[in-house]
Every structure is written in structure tokens, then in C-alpha cells.
């Protein structure tokens, strides 16, 4: 079967040695099994993330994203642009849609892009990795390569914010999207009811307002425990990092004993598709799931 080709925008957190590097590891085997080929956009830059607005102006942020879109359009013509990071995807899709809608912004953007030797025509569609899985591969397609069932594992599907709002996955609701639960079922695990499914982890304010965002994180992790989950799974790099990393801080400050593993959907798929702990990027997790390690270790 011919592989499906996409222009890949990894984003800063997916680089080697960065906070989401194990996500980048885990999608390799997953995409190989699903016949997805990601072609990295040459010389891509940061999208400005969700905190760039403080210092970066509207046009500056548009231009940052237009540069990546233009690089994809020029170097990988005809391919949809795909990002695994919700913030990258949101910023890029928002830029693409605004430029499409407002001719004056497109004119201004191209005047600035010229300084970097580029021009954007507006033909690229910005998509999220999860959209590719749900829309182009489908749940049956995702199930086909499963060789190891994650049977009996109780998982809280934590969708978070930016994979879900303001764009989200087509056909899903903002308040109770179901695709992540369906992905959990696809690998043979059990999605638990989870009332914090679309709650914000604090995002970038984990750095600037630690007390406030750690309150969010505590609620999220405690809800996962209350609903009998053994691990949390998420499609977002910042959700993953915030919810996993700060549990030890919360324990220190609040006397709790939170120790809930937080994984990516791609780590589950990678293991279900026969990947070991290393291929699934489990060595990048600070809190391990003994059960998942055991399943990954089985041949």
C-alpha cells in the first residue's frame, strides 16, 4: 500500500532532548504501522505558542506561522501540514484561516515574508496528528495493526484544551469529545468516566502562576484516581508535561501522594502495535505504569 504523505511540523517540544521528545519517539512505530509518512518541513520555526501574544504582535505571530506554511507549500507541495502539538496546530490553522479570509492580512504577511525569501499562496491545510488518525485512518484502521491488547488497563482520557478548542476534531462536541475514549477502546483498554476530560491544566501559566495551575492539575489527577483510572492519556505535550511533572510539587505542598502516570495516545498505540518500552518512549516518562511496562515487555 502506498504510504500517506504529510508535511510534518514537529514543533519545539518534539525536538531531541526537549520536553515532548518521547512523543516524537512514540509516533515513529505508530506511523510506520499505519502507513503514514511524515516529511519534516525544512527549517521550520516556533509557532509563538499560546504565550507569544504578550510581546509578539498580531502580524508578527501571523508571519511566524505563515513562514512554516509557506515552507510546506514550497517544499512539500500538495501535502497537508500535520503537527502533533496542539499549540502548533492551533496557531498554524488559525493563521491559515485568517490569511485565507482577509486579503489585506495576506498582502501584509507576504510583504514581511519576502524578507525571508518566501511567499505564501494559501493552499496548505493545517491538521493535527489526531485528525489524521481519526479522519484518514479511522478507528478500524487504527485497530488493524493491534497485536497486543492493553486488556484490563483502566485509562482516563484527558483531552485538555487546545486539541479540542477552538477547532477540535470534526463532529465531536467541545464539552464531551469521545475520540480519545474510542482510541483507548481500540487498543483493548477501558476508558473510565472522567469529569475533568476537557479541563485546562493551566497551560503556560504553570510557569508564571504555579499555585493556580497546580490547583487545576491536582483536580485533574484526583478525578482520575476517583474514577478508578490507572493512568491518564492525553494528545497534548503541555498537558502531559504539566500534569506529570508537577505531581511531586503538589505532594510536597499539599501532603498528597499523587503518582499517576500520564502518557500520550501514541505510546498506547505503539505498544499495542508490538513496540517495546523504548519504541513507545516510556523511558521519557517520569512516573511509570508498572502494568504498561509489563505489557510492553511481553513479546
Amino acid at each position: 500500500m502506498a504510504k500517506k504523505q504529510y508535511a510534518f511540523y514537529p514543533g519545539c517540544s518534539s525536538q531531541k532532548g526537549a520536553s515532548g521528545s518521547n512523543f516524537a519517539t512514540s509516533i515513529q512505530l505508530m506511523n510506520e504501522k499505519l502507513d503514514i509518512q511524515l516529511n519534516e518541513i525544512p527549517d521550520w520555526n516556533c509557532c509563538g505558542a499560546s504565550i507569544g501574544y504578550g510581546e509578539g504582535s498580531e502580524l508578527q505571530r501571523l508571519v511566524l506561522n505563515a513562514r512554516n506554511l509557506a515552507l510546506a507549500e514550497t517544499n512539500l507541495p500538495g501535502q497537508d501540514m500535520v503537527s502533533g502539538c496542539p499549540a502548533c496546530w492551533l496557531a498554524t490553522r488559525e493563521a491559515a484561516e485568517r490569511l485565507h479570509k482577509h486579503d489585506n492580512l495576506m498582502t501584509d504577511t507576504n510583504e514581511a515574508l519576502k524578507e525571508a525569501g518566501l511567499n505564501f499562496k494559501g493552499t496548505v491545510k493545517a491538521r493535527h496528528m489526531v485528525e489524521v488518525l481519526v479522519e484518514d485512518i479511522g478507528f478500524a484502521g487504527m485497530k488493524a495493526p493491534v497485536v497486543k491488547s492493553l486488556d484490563g488497563l483502566k485509562i482516563a482520557g484527558y483531552v485538555g484544551c487546545q486539541t479540542n478548542r477552538p477547532f477540535g476534531i470534526a463532529g465531536e462536541s467541545f464539552e464531551n469529545p469521545m475520540y480519545l475514549d474510542k482510541m483507548i477502546e481500540t487498543v483493548g483498554a477501558e476508558p473510565v468516566a472522567f469529569d475533568q476530560k476537557v479541563t485546562c491544566c493551566g497551560g503556560a501559566l504553570a510557569f508564571s502562576e504555579p499555585e493556580k495551575s497546580q490547583k487545576q492539575i491536582k483536580d485533574i489527577v484526583e478525578a482520575a484516581y476517583d474514577n478508578g483510572a490507572e493512568l491518564i492519556v492525553t494528545p497534548c505535550q503541555l498537558c502531559q508535561a504539566n500534569v506529570e511533572i508537577y505531581q511531586s510539587e503538589i505532594n510536597k505542598k499539599k501532603g498528597t501522594s499523587l503518582n499517576m502516570p500520564v502518557m500520550y495516545y501514541s505510546q498506547l498505540l505503539s505498544i499495542a502495535y508490538g513496540g517495546g518500552a523504548k519504541e513507545a518512549g516510556l523511558d521519557g516518562n517520569i512516573i511509570q505504569s508498572a502494568k504498561l511496562l509489563e505489557i510492553a515487555g511481553k513479546s
Binding site: K16, G17, A18, S57, Q60, T109, K114, E115, G117, G284
Partner: peptide, 27 residues
């Protein structure tokens, strides 16, 4: 391996840094 001490000396970067800075100034 999610935080690299090597980033302090070099780290990841774009090739066309000057082009990026110029387009941002232009914007």
C-alpha cells in the same frame, strides 16, 4: 532525556535566523 544540558551551549536552531528576524521586524 526531556531536558538537555547541551542546550546551554548551542541547541536547536533555524538556519535562516536572520531572515526570520528581518521578517519579524518588517511585520
Amino acid at each position: 532525556k526531556r531536558l538537555s544540558p547541551m542546550e546551554i551551549i548551542g541547541g536547536h536552531k533555524c538556519k535562516d535566523q536572520s531572515g526570520i528576524q528581518k521578517m519579524i521586524a518588517k511585520a
